[in-house]
């Protein structure tokens, strides 16, 4: 085994490994999914966020426009405050928009469904740091079952 051939083969080995890493980076992991592009933050208060997690998607009609940046509890009134990081490409949502926490499929991940409101005169667009007033909480299955049983019992 001469040294030249060894070097070429080792070089091919390293190149193969780099190609595999690139494939993992570009095709498998979602490294680039959030970093590119400017974003702005909106806040929304919910009564109950259910199973929402940081980095869950924010969707408008099924199109992902942003991600959940942070979830915290308001120290004053003890309600969860969700920070939504929205891509700056979509910066013309009117103030009358509403958000709700939805589930994709029966057992799927929870995400924030963003429902753009009507823009009529006198309604401004949402800007960085604004609170979205109209929110709908996550559907908690246990509450639903409890309510159902309660109603059955009172019949």
């Amino acid at each position: 085994m001469n040294s030249r051939k060894t070097e070429v083969l080792v070089g091919a080995f390293v190149a193969l490994a780099i190609a595999a890493l690139l494939m993992l980076a570009l095709h498998v992991a979602n490294q680039g999914a959030r970093g590119n592009g400017e974003t702005y933050n909106l806040y929304a208060k919910f009564d109950n966020i259910g199973g929402l997690k940081v980095r869950s998607a924010v969707k408008v009609g099924g199109v992902t426009v942003g991600r959940v940046e942070n979830i915290a509890l308001d120290p004053q009134d003890f309600t969860p405050v969700v920070t939504l990081s929205i891509s700056a490409d979509y910066n013309e949502f009117p103030e009358t928009s509403s958000v709700s926490i939805l589930t994709s499929g029966l057992l799927g991940e929870q995400y924030v469904g963003f429902q753009p409101g009507f823009s009529i005169d006198g309604v401004e667009n949402l800007a960085d740091g604004d609170y979205i007033e109209d929110t709908k909480s996550a559907l908690v299955l246990e509450d639903l079952i409890g309510q159902f049983l309660f109603n059955k019992g009172s019949d």
Binding site: L24, A25, H27, V28, A33
Partner: peptide, 15 residues
């Protein structure tokens, strides 16, 4: 196969 993989796998966390 690819898109759900991409949305689930995190670069730092997993790779």
């Amino acid at each position: 196969y690819w898109s759900i993989m991409q949305s689930t796998v995190e670069w730092n966390e997993d790779v």
